[in-house]
Design a protein around this nucleic acid. Structure first.
Length: 322
DNA sequence: TTCCGACAGTGGGGTCGCAAT
DNA sequence: ATTGCGACCCCACTATCGGAA
């Protein structure tokens, strides 16, 4: 069951909803039986070997059989979920694909941060399916299991307090909240309106430094815009944005960019060849706004979405805002 | 008739493994 | 040794079409 992107339910209706923090990690369903745990990802891939810590679930549920739904997350030093940290774990040994020798963590190697399985739903218990039960009943039964270990936890759900939950998620630097209708059954495989994800989106002004040729239906406009921001007077690369345009905007921007084309990269430091491949450069005079989730370690926008031109803004004033 | 949900298509950052260079 | 590419993870968004409302 997946959540539909959206906004908080109206205040008058929030008493019919529970609000949970949105955890930035990898979705996984755990099958616990006979002292064993099997962890499956969204694509059906077997993650059991990739995140062996989750095997501790078996010890927390002696003699029980159940199916749990949750998120595997890696925590940074401040205890916040970090998808970038988790990525170092994602390609580890797994019965799905990884014949790979495990790489020693330490000198030269990427550290392997521990992960935590955050459980938020109970799909079956001791042979009885809970799918048709309402959220409240599933949640009650989940809480009754008393899952609380180093590597497996049941984070709290807040009933009726959507605005406070969203504020908390923002203050804690989390991705957002997921609102779940109290009366709703579990709908496997469906993107349901009974679950609504409300993300803490950020916006950033960017200077358009160029574009990359598109593919397929985008071959005659562009694939993505190459973005920059000023840092102490130097224009630095901030990643690409390739979504959020409709046909009209694609055509309009293509026409605006054509007369601005130049040979030289407008960035103060040349991009690595891989990044610059297929790029057309322009005079850095157009300013646009993008929505995004966070900055990556490398200073790129994560999940960038084009919002529109900002003709009211001076390119020289475009700096990283947070 | 209108609207919603599912799908396909296009794009992003990032990591890893393997083949081509 | 480096580079390129696809396969996975996470994701946003547009356009389309058929069936539900």
């Amino acid at each position: 069951m997946l959540a539909t992107p959206g906004s908080l339910p109206p205040a008058a209706d929030q008493h019919r909803w529970a609000f949970e923090m949105k955890w930035d990690g990898v979705r996984a369903v755990a099958y616990v039986a006979d002292g064993r745990v099997v962890l499956l990802g969204r694509s059906g891939r077997d993650f059991t070997g990739t995140y062996p810590e989750v095997g501790a679930l078996a010890d927390l549920l002696p003699g029980r059989r159940c199916v749990l739904d949750g998120e595997v997350v890696a925590l940074d030093e401040r205890g916040r979920p970090s998808f970038e940290l988790l990525q170092a774990r994602m390609h580890g040994p797994g019965s799905g694909s990884g014949r790979g020798r495990r790489r020693a963590s330490g000198a030269g190697g990427t550290a392997r941060p521990p992960v935590v399985y955050l459980v938020f739903d109970l799909l079956a218990l001791d042979g009885t399916s809970m799918l048709a039960s309402p959220y409240t009943a599933r949640r009650e039964a989940l809480d009754a299991l008393g899952l609380a270990g180093l590597y497996c936890q049941v984070p709290p759900a807040f009933v009726g307090a959507g605005d406070a939950a969203l504020r908390t998620s923002r203050d804690q630097g989390l991705e957002g909240v997921v609102a779940k209708r109290l009366s709703s059954p579990y709908e496997p495989g469906r993107r349901s309106a009974s679950w609504v994800k409300v993300k803490n989106l950020r916006t950033q002004e960017v200077v358009i430094a160029g574009w990359r040729v598109g593919e397929g239906s985008r071959a005659d406009t562009f694939g993505a815009l190459l973005c920059g921001v000023y840092d102490e007077g130097r224009l630095v690369y901030a990643g690409r944005v390739g979504t959020g345009f409709n046909q009209d905007r694609l055509a309009d921007l293509t026409a605006r960019l054509a007369p601005l084309e130049q040979r030289a990269q407008p960035f103060d430091e040349r991009l690595p060849t891989a990044e610059a491949r297929g790029a057309h450069w322009v005079r850095p005079v157009l300013v646009g706004e993008v929505a995004f989730s966070e900055w990556t370690r490398d200073g790129r926008l994560r999940h960038p979405v084009w919002r529109g031109l900002r003709p009211d803004k001076d390119p020289d004033e475009v700096v990283r805002e947070s």
